[in-house]
């Protein structure tokens, strides 16, 4: 009991001391569900990390693009490379980011700050996005901040929705981004750079929306609704 009260007090104290950028961010997320798909702001994002453990490993680079209507504005994209304190030899082969590369790098704190501004009022989209969100959440924790508050869409899940219920095996399967690209005929270029993956995922997202919206009556609510799978 005492512990519970202590925890609550700590929480409110913390909340009062939250920095302005976090407050702005939290404020921006208040009235999303009322908008239509056309009017919504989607941010498709991807992180390259030093490994597959969100707690231990660190974000190396982040890439994101914004979708409004059915348009991506290239000017308005997000791409940062982070200073690395945890370096993992094995993953270099995948992302090709060196500890001291030529690219201009920023601190983790700065990167997350910029990212929060970028995703203000947006719905986050990504392929197997729970991993990317978890990575960002641990980074937020290190900065003493709560978890991300955005609504989240996973293209891996959405892709399954495009399949007819008859193809039961599709629902149990986990689709990698490569598989989804092959099936939707999306060109895979710059795979395993954060920006490249974010762009590819955005195209995948477009194509999935196109397939789900054949009758032009798709609502945002339906997009978040995952039907009960028949096994």
């Amino acid at each position: 009991m005492w512990n519970y009260i202590k925890k609550n007090i700590a929480y409110f104290l913390k909340k009062r001391h939250q920095p302005d950028y976090w407050k702005n961010y939290a404020e921006s997320l208040k009235n999303i569900p009322t908008k239509s798909i056309e009017e919504s702001k989607f941010v498709v994002f991807d992180c390259e990390t030093s490994g597959l453990n969100p707690k231990e490993d660190r974000i190396l680079s982040m890439g994101a693009v914004t979708i409004r209507g059915n348009t991506i504005d290239i000017k308005d994209n997000f791409e940062v490379y982070l200073e690395q304190d945890i370096f993992n030899r094995e993953s270099v082969a995948i992302h090709g980011l060196l500890k001291k590369g030529k690219l201009k790098k920023v601190s983790e704190e700065q990167a997350i700050k910029n990212f929060l501004v970028y995703i203000e009022g947006a719905i986050l989209v990504g392929h197997h996005i729970s991993f990317d969100v978890a990575c960002v959440n641990y980074a937020l924790k290190r900065m003493g901040l709560p978890k991300l508050k955005n609504k989240v869409l996973d293209t891996g899940v959405l892709f399954k929705k495009t399949k007819h219920q008859l193809y039961a095996e599709a629902f149990t399967k986990v689709f990698s981004l490569d598989e989804v690209c092959d099936e939707l005929k999306v060109k895979k270029k710059d795979r395993h750079t954060a920006s490249g993956d974010a762009y590819i995922t955005a195209i995948v997202f477009f194509k999935i929306l196109g397939r789900l919206n054949r009758n032009n009556d798709l609502t945002l609510k339906e997009l978040f609704f995952t039907p009960k799978m028949i096994y």
Partner: peptide, 10 residues
């Protein structure tokens, strides 16, 4: 800032 997607378009 580096922009990978712009490079791709170019």
């Amino acid at each position: 800032m580096k922009n990978t997607i712009a490079e791709r378009i170019a």
